[in-house]
Design a protein around this nucleic acid. Structure first.
Lengths: 267, 267
DNA sequence: AAGTGGTCTAGACCACCAT
DNA sequence: TGGTGGTCTAGACCACTTA
């Protein structure tokens, strides 16, 4: 297990001290693990050292380590596979589909159960530009007005019907080296692309929705009639430590689709 | 502690066996605790016997019991208060406000932080009727078409501006004894009212939203102009065991407010 | 068969709350 | 002071994966 021992050596800097007084021991352990991930000592997809090893290195009991790992698994930062090991979570197509893409074909029967129709949308890039952040985007992304950003417009279709128009703003500093060619040639989900190509993991987002009338651009891009009501969703997506990394505005044509959400216990 | 011992005796029927083979031991324990609550042996607000006592009665270790309780606390079925005890959760005004009422005044700055403006809406009852369930409502609530239901329309205002029109359908069988007078005279949040008066606890909900143009009724009730776009939200609220208990359609006027949601790890 | 995570135990000690 | 939940320990044993 050469890779593992290398990882442990590299991880030593994160794992040999629990000095940060973050309250209870398991929270300090959790913070130490997060530090290993945020500092890219452990990369998405990597296997962690075994629980026994980490616990030993940190000088805590295995139960305490497990409590910390439990929380990170729940937050989808880590993934456990019985018999194999614990891994830094990778964004899968399914995770994107079920967690972040929340548009579903209209159901006649509400309580019917699992949506049959959760298909992956077809994505077309409408425009890709390098611009300067306006006030709203800078505010959301914690940049200064005028900082360089990429502005990407995508059109998403389900069953060949244009349903969503996305307007995405990301920091050009954070996504250093991104260009239209790389973006167009990506072979995966956009959040997977962020993660594998730029090391940016989207963990959760906050959304605000309102009803609007189709703008001229929406009429053209979505092919809807003037006066059509649409849902406009503003999303701020966050990475570790609540760091905002993507500012997105989506226009959703809800003639045959719904914007779906769950209302359950807050985290 | 007379009340406690009575509760334990009553609870014996739930707590003396773990026969239901629900997989691992702590899951069986969790199910046993849920049974005590669902069968109303323990009522909302009641204090549970101490962890030591329950663990002893069930013949499991305290760690195993705690794991079961941990999950129920996370699902907001139980509440722990250090030094005092563990209690069956009661719906508070705050829980309604923060978890289930998801309309907030528009913020100019998105990432600004905690919404300053989360005020409790003023609620007016527009109509209260006993009707027969139509197909959609029956479907959602797992009733038969034509079963008796209560249909309640409420108008919600924030800062004296009408913002939401709620259309609520609940089973008259489940809410036996409800009438307009009792509904109007309730002194609390609607979900708190369901819980304290009818023993029905709303745990979570699933919502589907779409943009619509204001109907004649919305124009009249919300005082908006014809052609105004609104968000229509259909909510199915569930109690224990995924039992649907309330079917609600809300029209939201989003001129100065947003429909807000979090996108985080699924449960 | 060896290594991993998954479950469960039987304690110890601490922090908080009531009286 | 006595009871409650909160944290932590150091194991044992099981189930799953890989070789």
């Amino acid at each position: 297990m050469d890779m593992l021992s290398v990882m442990q050596d590299a991880g030593t800097k994160c794992l040999d001290r629990l000095s940060q007084d973050g309250g209870s021991l398991y929270l300090q352990v959790k913070r130490a693990l997060l530090t290993c991930i945020e500092s890219r000592v452990w990369l998405p997809g990597d296997q962690l050292p075994s629980e026994t090893l980490i616990a030993g290195q940190l000088g805590v009991s295995i139960g305490t380590l497990r409590r910390a790992v439990d929380e990170l698994v729940q937050e989808q930062v880590l993934v456990r596979r019985q018999g194999k090991g614990t891994f830094v979570a990778l964004h899968s197509r399914d995770r994107y589909l079920f967690q972040f893409f929340r548009v579903e074909a209209r159901e006649e029967r509400f309580g019917a159960g699992i949506p049959s129709d959760s298909e992956y949308p077809e994505v077309e890039c409408v425009s890709f530009e390098r611009q300067r952040a306006d006030e709203a985007a800078a505010d959301a992304l914690r940049l200064r007005t005028g900082d360089p950003v990429f502005v990407i417009q995508n059109r998403l279709s389900l069953k060949r019907r244009a349903v969503v128009l996305d307007h995405i703003v990301i920091s050009a500093t954070l996504f250093k080296g991104l260009n239209e060619k790389r973006f167009l040639e990506r072979s995966s989900t956009i959040y997977n692309f962020y993660q594998t190509e730029f090391g940016i993991t989207v963990l959760h987002a906050r959304e605000r929705a309102r009803a609007v009338l189709a703008s001229r651009e929406a009429i053209r891009r979505l092919g809807v009639a003037p006066g059509t009501p649409l849902i406009e969703v503003q999303r701020l997506a966050h990475s570790f430590g609540e760091r905002p990394v993507e500012w997105r505005t989506s226009l959703i044509y809800t003639q045959q689709h719904d914007y779906v959400s769950d209302v359950s216990a807050p985290r």
